[in-house]
C-alpha cells in the first residue's frame, strides 16, 4: 500500500495524483479501497455476479484512463461510482439479464412470495433476493439507481445528485417514489421472518 515517507497511509487524493503519473500500486490501492462499494452498487443494479464484476472492471479502467477528467470536486469514490453507475445502466440496457420473476402487468400485479415459500418456514436469502430484485427491476433504471445508492451505500443526497447529475430535490423525489412503488410491488406483510 503506498505510504507517505512518514508512514502515514495516503488519502485518495494523493493516490489519484500518483495514479495520474502512472503509478500502478497507487491504481491498485484505489481499486482495493473502492471495489466492494462499486460491486455492491453494480450487483444491486444488475442482479448478476458476473455482470457486476464486468461493470466494476470496465468502470475502473475508464476511471483510471480518464483521471485527467477527475476534478477532485467530489471524492474519488463518488466519481468512480458515477462511472460504474453509467456502466451498469448501459450494461443493464444492453443485456437485460436482470433476474425475472415472470411478472406480467407491472402496475397491477404485486409480487407475491413464491407459493413454496411459506413465510412460517422463513424464506432463504436467495428467495428474498429474487423477490426484491424482481421489484427493483420494475423501477426505471435511474430511480432504481437512486434508491440503491441511498439504501446500499448510504450516500448523501448531494453525493447521489453528483453521481446522477440531477438536483438534490430530484434525488429526494425519486427516493420517495421508489419506496412507495416498492411497497406496492412487494407483499411485505406476507414476509414475516427476515
Amino acid at each position: 500500500m503506498p505510504e507517505a515517507p512518514t508512514g502515514v497511509v495516503c488519502d485518495d487524493e494523493t493516490l489519484v495524483q500518483l495514479a495520474r503519473g502512472g503509478d500502478r500500486p497507487a491504481c491498485e490501492e484505489l481499486f482495493r479501497r473502492h471495489r466492494d462499494a462499486a460491486y455492491r452498487v453494480a450487483f444491486r443494479m444488475l442482479g448478476h455476479h458476473d455482470d457486476a464484476l464486468d461493470a466494476v472492471q470496465e468502470g475502473f479502467i475508464k476511471a483510471i484512463g480518464h483521471l485527467e477528467d477527475f476534478g477532485g470536486r467530489s471524492g474519488f469514490r463518488t466519481w468512480l461510482l458515477r462511472i460504474v453507475h453509467n456502466a451498469a445502466i448501459d450494461a443493464g440496457r444492453k443485456r437485460k439479464r436482470m433476474p425475472s420473476l415472470g411478472i406480467g402487468d407491472e402496475e397491477h400485479n404485486p409480487i407475491e412470495p413464491a407459493c413454496e415459500d411459506d413465510p412460517a418456514r422463513g424464506l432463504n436469502r436467495a428467495d428474498l433476493r429474487r423477490i426484491l430484485d424482481g421489484a427493483l427491476n420494475r423501477l426505471s433504471p435511474k430511480t432504481r439507481m437512486t434508491f440503491i445508492l441511498f439504501a446500499e451505500e448510504n450516500l448523501s443526497y448531494k453525493e447521489i445528485a453528483e453521481i446522477q447529475d440531477v438536483p438534490i430535490g430530484t434525488v429526494m423525489s425519486r427516493l420517495s417514489y421508489a419506496r412507495h412503488k416498492l411497497q406496492s410491488y412487494l407483499d411485505l406483510d406476507a414476509i414475516d421472518e427476515l
Partner: peptide
C-alpha cells in the same frame, strides 16, 4: 420491513 428485506439481501462481496 423493506429496510429489513434490503439488509437481509445484501450482496456477498
Amino acid at each position: 420491513k423493506l429496510n429489513q428485506l434490503w439488509d437481509a439481501t445484501r450482496p456477498v462481496e
